[in-house]
Each structure stands twice: as structure tokens, then as C-alpha cells.
Design a protein around this nucleic acid. Structure first.
Lengths: 168, 168
DNA sequence: TTGATTTCGTTAGGATGCAAACGATATTAT
DNA sequence: ATAATATCGTTTGCATCCTAACGAAATCAA
């Protein structure tokens, strides 16, 4: 029996044949998480190239505007958590979005330390357009799946998400 | 009938109630892709905090070492593609890993422009350890799924990945 | 009331991330 | 052979990304 040529082998097959004898890793778990990363990188790159960069927006900046558009004006700590970034990073992104005119910082009425971030009218207009364009991309990504499979994928990912809820 | 309190509503529900009337987005597609991002961010953060940072390694640096460990020494353009980063970014990461002593640049024998990147002995030792630790984390992430569900998730994600193979 | 502590957002320093411009090396054209 | 072209990896400029240190503002203590 001939061996498969290298070019046609998946990473998982390669790991299995190279290292499985000595270390015995869980190849299926590895493949699943690995595919999550591949999808996420691919989507991010496509979104930036096809829709975001022409408006001087990064994916991170878009994510922040998206959260503001869905939730309305928010305090920074909540905004950072919803975006999955640290508060230091948030400061930088908000500053960039302020320069572009899409978001604005507001003072808290009673607490001089806190601030709120809100969409500007321009940011609102942009999001109305981008929200649908990104949703088009999302539909394109899951276009090869049936409706049942899409919700099944969501369900499985949600279970994975909850694996870290109560760290052992 | 009482409305759900805000805190218990998912982002998808919020989008649906806030914007669905006017724009009619595909909420299921949005939720699926959104969950992909959440898993990927969560895994990256956990991996860095629990295993990588103590070795002065970022997730990107680990990914590069991982590819080298699985594939052996590689030319830079192939390495960048396998890691999903640009060639400029690759230069920076390889430089960092060289400073740390985990990887090394080698000259091409016949072509003076090309270079190869290889693991050092130290990098090899580190990867043998980290590979299993990260695999433990991968197993922990999919721990709430049955074996069938893990492979099903991989299959669905692979289909999503191929949605971009032949851009319309 | 005044001093210590806590809690905000920002800043600093280092490491990704990208696209585009850049030198160095190879190849091709004439 | 020499000029034009193509292809490498690196550099540059800007925007994230993190942790840790920092000042300002609020709260708590005595």
C-alpha cells in the first residue's frame, strides 16, 4: 500500500503519524478546536477586506460599534467585557473611533471617574449599513449547512463555551 | 406576560427585538459565527494564562512553534500561510522566538533570498511539554460533548471553512 | 476632617497584526 | 552582457492586544 503524498495530508493526520506513538494526544479534540480557529481567522480577514477597511475600520473597531449599536451607550468596563478585550485596549480603540467620528466619550453625571461610550449619528448610519453586509457574510459562511445544522453548530459551540464556566 | 429582564437576554435576542423589524437579519447565522468567535477568544486567553505566559510565549508564538513541530523546518511563505498571518508579521514573531532561543533562521543553500525556520533543541523540548498541555485544554473544552458530537462539530466547521474556497 | 483604600480610565512598554514600500537576490528579455 | 522584471525577507507606520504602573476621583476610617 502506498503512502499518501504529503500535500494531501491534513494537519491532524500528520500529527497522528508523527507524534501519536509517543504522546497519544486526543486528535479529535485537537481537530475540533483547530477548526474553530481557522473559521474565526478566515471570517475576520474576509470581513476586513470586503467591508471594513474601505471605511477605515478594523474588525475590533467594528465589534465595538456593533455592541454599542445593539446595546446602546455603555460604560467602559461592560463594553470591554462584551468585546472580550482589556480596559487598556478599549481606551485605544475608542480613541481611534473618536478620531474617525463614529463614537464619542461622555462624562458620568455623578461619578467623575466613570465614562460612557456612545455612537455618533455617523456611527449609527455606518452600522446600519455594515450590520447587514456582515450578516450577508455570515449567511455566506453557513451557506453550505442546512438550517438544522446551523442551529446544531450553535448548540455545540455553546456547550463548549460553558465548559469554562466553573473551572475545576 | 412579563418581559424578560435585560440581564438574562442573549445578544441574539436583543438584536432580534431591537433591529429585526426594520432590517430582518439572519439571527441563526449570526449566532453561529458569533459563537465561533467566543470560543476562539476564550481558548486563546485560557491557553495563554494557564500554559504559555509562564514560558514567555504568546499564542501566536506557540502556534508558529506548533507548526514547526508538526511539519518540521519550513520556508517562510509556507509557514506564514499555515499560521494564518502575513509575511511581515511572521518576521516579527520569528525574531521574538529567536531571541527566546526557541527557533532559528537558516540560509537557503541555492537561493540567497529564501530562508528556512527551524526549531532549536530548546524549542523542541518546550513543545513536547506544551503540546500535551494544550491538548489537555482542548479535551477540557470539548469535555461536555460526546465523541460523536465532537466529530460532528469538526465536520460542520470544515464545511463552513470550504464556503470560501471558490468565491462567487 | 484628613488620611488610607478602592476604583475608575489612561499611559507605558513590549508583542502581534496588516499593507505597502524597500533593498537584495534571481530570472528573463533583448 | 546588461537592463527590465519578478520574488524573496525586512522595515515602516499605524492599530490592536496584554499587563502593570499611574493619576484622579470616590469611599471608608478614625
Amino acid at each position: 500500500m502506498r503512502k499518501k503524498p504529503d500535500a494531501s495530508r491534513t494537519i491532524q493526520e500528520r500529527v497522528a503519524t508523527t507524534h501519536v506513538q509517543s504522546l497519544n494526544p486526543d486528535i479529535d479534540a485537537m481537530a475540533a478546536i483547530s477548526n474553530v480557529f481557522r473559521v474565526s481567522v478566515l471570517f475576520r480577514n474576509q470581513a476586513e477586506k470586503r467591508f471594513l477597511l474601505q471605511h477605515n475600520l478594523t474588525f475590533s473597531g467594528f465589534t465595538l460599534l456593533w455592541v454599542l449599536w445593539v446595546f446602546g451607550k455603555m460604560e467602559t468596563h461592560q463594553l470591554a467585557q462584551e468585546c472580550g478585550i482589556s480596559k487598556g485596549t478599549l481606551t485605544g480603540i475608542v480613541s481611534t473611533l473618536e478620531k474617525r467620528g463614529f463614537a464619542i466619550r461622555e462624562r458620568h453625571e455623578t461619578d467623575g471617574r466613570r465614562k460612557r461610550v456612545a455612537l455618533t449619528a455617523s456611527g449609527n448610519r455606518l452600522m446600519k449599513k455594515l450590520f447587514m453586509e456582515i450578516n450577508t457574510l455570515e449567511k455566506e459562511f453557513v451557506g453550505g449547512l442546512s438550517a438544522t445544522e446551523v442551529t446544531e453548530m450553535s448548540r455545540l459551540l455553546r456547550i463548549v463555551l460553558h465548559s469554562q464556566d466553573k473551572p475545576a
